[in-house]
Computed example of a mutant assay.
Amino acid sequence: MGRVIGFELNSQEPEKAAEFYAKVFGWEIATPHWNYWALTTGDDKKLGINGGIGKGPHDFPFGTRIQIEVDSIDEAISKAKESGAIIVRDKMEFDEFYLAYMVDPTGLGFGIIQNK
């Protein structure tokens, strides 16, 4: 079962957005890594998820995407495509995880992530 483990806020002014969410909601903003500011939205002992803010790419310049953790990113991509999803960004490798972005058949964007 895929579980939502995070969210991404895409903005063309990520630093300004980070300042806004820190001021309004008290979120902790990490030092940027790969032009991405990790967000801590509260105490890990309480129900909720963390996320991040980044400069939105050309294919998703503004908006929010959830990140769904899967056991096998290759299998999840295959099942999603078979069910009508479109790959926006195919499997990418990062230090600790793999990540891909897709759009479901109704037009909603989402990310899938597999930890290494």
Rank of each mutant, 00 (worst) to 15 (best):
I66N: 12
I53M: 03
Y36I: 06
N115K: 14
E15M: 06
G107V: 00
G42D: 01
D104C: 01
I86F: 14
I5T: 09
L9Q: 02
G48N: 06
M92Y: 03
I86P: 02
K46V: 15
K81N: 03
G2E: 14
D59P: 03
P14K: 01
S78D: 14
A17C: 14
A85P: 09
T106W: 08
G51I: 03
K55C: 10
K45L: 15
I87V: 15
K16A: 09
E15S: 01
G111D: 01
H58K: 15
L108S: 05
D90C: 08
F20I: 01
G109K: 10
M92R: 09
S72I: 12
E96F: 08
W27I: 00
G52F: 01
H33Q: 06
F110S: 03
G63M: 07
G6Q: 15
G84W: 00
Y21Q: 02
E93P: 01
G56M: 14
G26P: 00
D44G: 11
A17T: 14
M1F: 14
E82F: 00
G51C: 08
S72Q: 13
K81R: 12
F62D: 04
M102F: 08
G42E: 03
P32E: 09
M1Q: 15
F25E: 00
K116N: 13
E15N: 02
A18R: 07
M1R: 11
D95T: 14
L99A: 06
A17N: 07
D95A: 13
V4I: 08
K16T: 11
W27H: 04
L47W: 10
K55V: 03
V4H: 04
D90I: 12
A17Y: 08
A38F: 04
M102V: 12
V103E: 05
Q12M: 11
M102G: 07
A30K: 13
I49P: 07
H58Y: 14
G48Q: 07
I73E: 01
K79Y: 04
Q114V: 11
G52P: 01
G42L: 02
A30N: 15
H58E: 15
E28N: 11
A22D: 05
E93M: 11
K55N: 05
E8D: 10
I29L: 03
I86R: 10
I29R: 00
G2I: 13
K116A: 14
K116H: 12
T64S: 06
F20Q: 00
D74C: 09
S72L: 11
N50M: 13
E69S: 12
G26I: 03
I86Q: 13
T40H: 06
L9R: 00
G6T: 13
